[in-house]
Amino acid sequence: MSRTMFLILWLVIASGILTFMALAWRARNRRDAGLALPDSGLAGDVVQAFEHVGYVSTTPAGAPLERLAIPGLRYKGWADVTVRRDGVEIAVTGERPVHLAAASVRGTDSAGGRIGKVVERDGLALLGWEGTDGRAVESSFRFQTAGEQRRFAAAVGEIAPSAFAPKSSHTLTTSQTTHTSQEDA
């Protein structure tokens, strides 16, 4: 096989893979269109504001490896998260802000991993909420410190006192993640 034929073969393979990826992302966008949130802003008093938080992903409750393509929450990046009396605002850099009404917020939890990131035990904060179509979903964040993560959980607890109960045993929790550290010794 000549170098030219080899190059053409690899170009065909690469373009096929890229085409498949684009079609799959488009199908995911159509599938998750029912979860699109209303554009209404929140006007309640600020309970707690967190700047420059690592937004990881939004997944269906109990399916930590299945990313949802919700407008405003599609891509991993830095976010400003504001907990208000009437809900939670998530503003991922480069995306339009997402406003979750307090009535749709189910609570918080923690995990060691989600699609896009695996960290130490309880290193990710989960925000459980319900989409407009009734599906339970979880948005995950990586805070700079454990203290920030606890303040986030306390602030969400003020507006959504109901307990966060994962709908499936597939959710990564403390008992399912393993790591070795000096704390465990």
Rank of each mutant, 00 (worst) to 15 (best):
A101S: 15
R67Y: 01
E138R: 09
T178Q: 07
R114D: 04
A24Y: 15
H52Y: 10
R84M: 14
L126Y: 01
W78H: 13
K167M: 04
E120I: 00
I159H: 12
F6E: 06
P166A: 03
W78V: 10
S168W: 13
Q176R: 13
G94S: 05
P60N: 11
K76S: 06
I13F: 03
G34Y: 05
V56G: 00
I115A: 06
L18A: 15
W78A: 11
E66Y: 11
E130V: 08
A154D: 13
P161W: 03
G113Y: 05
E95C: 09
D32T: 00
L9M: 14
H179P: 05
E95K: 09
P64G: 01
L68P: 01
N29Y: 10
A146T: 10
A102G: 15
T178F: 10
Q182H: 10
T82C: 12
D32G: 02
F20W: 14
S140K: 03
L126S: 00
W129E: 14
G94V: 01
I70K: 06
D32S: 03
T177N: 11
R96E: 13
M5E: 10
R74T: 02
L42V: 13
D80V: 09
P97G: 06
L11H: 11
G113H: 00
F143K: 08
G16I: 02
L126P: 00
V83W: 10
A153N: 10
A163H: 12
L68Y: 01
V156S: 06
G128M: 03
A163K: 14
L65C: 08
V81H: 10
T171G: 00
S162W: 00
M1C: 13
G72M: 14
G116W: 09
S139Q: 09
A111F: 01
E66K: 11
G54H: 08
